[in-house]
Design a protein around this nucleic acid. Structure first.
Lengths: 258, 258
DNA sequence: CGAGTGCTTGAGCTACGTCAACCATAGTGG
DNA sequence: CCACTATGGTTGACGTAGCTCAAGCACTCG
C-alpha cells in the first residue's frame, strides 16, 4: 500500500507545459484553468450527486490553482477574506498569534480539506495558513461560491457540511485539550491523522508526518519536549514505531483505549 | 443599567393566554406561531437588510417557540438532526460525553445565539444542549432554512456568518486551552461573558452567571477547585468582585493584560 | 566540514490536580 | 418553625504531570 509521503508530493494532473504559470516572490505560483470534472480528488471536495452540467458550473468557479512552497503563507491573519481554498496536494498548518509573538497551531490540513472559513464572519482572516511542504490549492472565490450554492442545492448542502465538519473537528479538539493527558493527546493525534490518510486511500498505519515536534506540541497544548517524550513512551509500550517523522502504528486499538 | 439577571428571566412577548401551549413530561413546552417581524431580539438573529416581504418569509419558517425548564435537554447527543435553534431568552450549556460518563462543557449560549450546528455533518447531534435556567428557543427546521437561503441572499450570507462565527469562537477556545494558565482562562471567560452581555444591552460590568464552578471548570479545562481559587485570586487582586455567581468586573483592562 | 534545525533525554521546579474538611444557602418534611 | 439534607462554594495540605532549562545527538544543506 502507498505511504502517504509519496502521493502527497505527486505532481498535479495538469502538466507544466500546457499551463500558463506565474511566479511570485512569495513562493506562491499560479496555474490557470483547472478542471474539477477531471480532478483526481474531486470526490473529496465536491458533492457526489452533481449532474455533468452542474460540474461544468463548478469548473467555471475555480479559475486558479496555486502552488505554495514549504514555509510560505497562503494567507495571513488580518488579510482580507475573498476566497476559500481546497487543498489539492500537500499539507498546511493554520496558526493564530498569541500576544508577544508566540504562535499557536490550530489545525493541520491535508488533501481534500478546506481552508479559510474563519474569514467569513469578519471579512478578514483571523488565522494564517502556512504550507508544511510544497502544496497546491484550488482557489475558490467565496462570493461566486455562495451564488452557486443558491443555484445548486447539493452544493449548498455540501458547503454547510464542510463548515459543520469544521465545527465538529474543533469541538473534538476542545475536548482533547480540556480533558486528556499528554499521552492520550498524542495517541489521539496519531489516530486522527491515520484515519484521514486512510480515507484518502493512503496507508492508515504507516505515514510520514510533515510537522515538527514543536508544531505538534503547540497544536496539542503541550511542549515539544513532552510531545517527544510521549512518542518515546508510545514506542516503549510498542503501540507505535516512531523514527522522527516516520510513523508506523502498531496497535491502534490500544492507542484508542489509552 | 440593567443587570443581566433580570432581563434573562423576562417573560416572552407572547402572552400565555393567547397562545396554544403543549406541555411535555420532559420539561419542554411548545408555544406556536411566533413572529420574527415583531420579536425584540430579531436584530440578533436576522440579517439587518431584509425587506418586509422577506421577513414575512422568515416568519413562516419559525413555526414554534419552545420553553425548556432548567436542567432539561433541548437535544441530546445522537438525537436526529432536524432543527437549529435560536436562543430567545435564558441560557444553555452544550456538553459532550467523554467515555466513562464524564461530561465536558463545550460552550455556553445566551440570548440571540444559535444552537445545533454540530448536527449538520452527520445528520445527528454530537453534543447535547441543557438549559441552565428556564429558557425559550425558536425552533428553525434546517431544510426549510436552507431553502430560504437559496432564495434570499442576505439570509444565506447571514447563516454563513453564524457558522463562521462559531468556528472562530471555537478557535479562540482552542487557543485558550492550548496556551493559557488557569488565572488567564478565568479572566478571559469573564471578559467574554461581559462582552456578550454588553452587546445585548445588559450591563457588561455586573451580571449573574448561571453556571456552577464545576461547569466553568469543565469548560475551561480546569477543576472546579482551581476555578474557585482563581475567582478568589482575582478578587484579592481587586480585578473583580465575585460573590458566588454574582460578578462585578472592576478592572477589565488588567484582566485582559493578565 | 561547519552551521543550522530538529529530536531526544535528564534534572529540578511549579502550577494544578486530588482529597478532604468545612461553610452557606435553599428546599423538604415533621 | 426548626432540624435535616442536598447542592454549591471555599480553602488547605499534599502529590504529580508536565514545564523549564540544558546538554548532546542526528540530519541536512550550503
Amino acid at each position: 500500500m502507498l505511504i502517504a509521503d509519496a502521493p502527497m508530493s505527486t505532481p498535479s494532473p495538469f502538466g507544466q507545459a500546457t499551463d500558463f504559470v506565474r511566479r511570485f516572490q512569495s513562493g506562491v505560483v499560479q496555474r490557470l484553468t483547472p478542471r474539477c470534472s477531471q480532478c483526481a480528488i474531486s470526490t473529496l471536495c465536491n458533492p457526489a450527486d452533481l449532474s455533468s452540467e452542474e460540474l461544468a458550473q463548478v469548473d467555471t468557479l475555480v479559475q486558479e490553482v496555486r502552488t505554495v512552497q514549504r514555509g510560505a503563507s497562503l494567507y495571513r491573519a488580518n488579510d482580507a477574506f475573498n476566497n476559500v481554498y481546497i487543498l489539492r496536494s500537500g499539507s498546511f498548518k493554520t496558526i493564530v498569534m498569541h500576544r508577544e509573538g508566540r504562535e499557536q497551531v490550530t489545525g493541520f490540513q491535508i488533501a481534500g480539506e478546506m481552508l479559510g472559513l474563519d474569514g467569513i464572519v469578519g471579512g478578514q482572516h483571523l488565522c494564517g495558513a502556512v504550507a508544511l511542504e510544497r502544496s497546491t490549492v484550488c482557489v475558490i472565490p467565496f462570493e461566486p461560491l455562495e451564488d452557486l450554492c443558491r443555484q445548486i442545492k447539493p452544493m449548498q448542502r455540501h458547503l454547510h457540511k464542510v463548515m459543520s465538519r469544521e465545527i465538529v473537528r474543533e469541538s473534538n479538539m476542545i475536548m482533547l485539550l480540556g480533558t486528556m493527558r499528554a499521552e492520550q493527546r498524542v495517541a489521539n493525534f496519531l489516530l486522527n491523522l491515520a484515519d484521514r490518510y486512510g480515507t484518502r486511500g493512503y496507508s492508515a498505519t504507516e505515514f510520514n508526518m510533515r510537522m515538527t515536534r514543536s508544531e505538534i506540541g503547540s497544536y496539542l497544548g503541550i511542549t515539544l519536549e513532552t510531545a517527544s517524550r510521549m512518542f518515546s513512551k508510545l514506542q516503549q509500550e510498542k503501540l507505535v514505531h516512531a523514527r522522527g517523522k516516520q510513523i508506523r502504528i502498531l496497535d491502534s486499538g490500544a492507542l484508542a483505549r489509552l
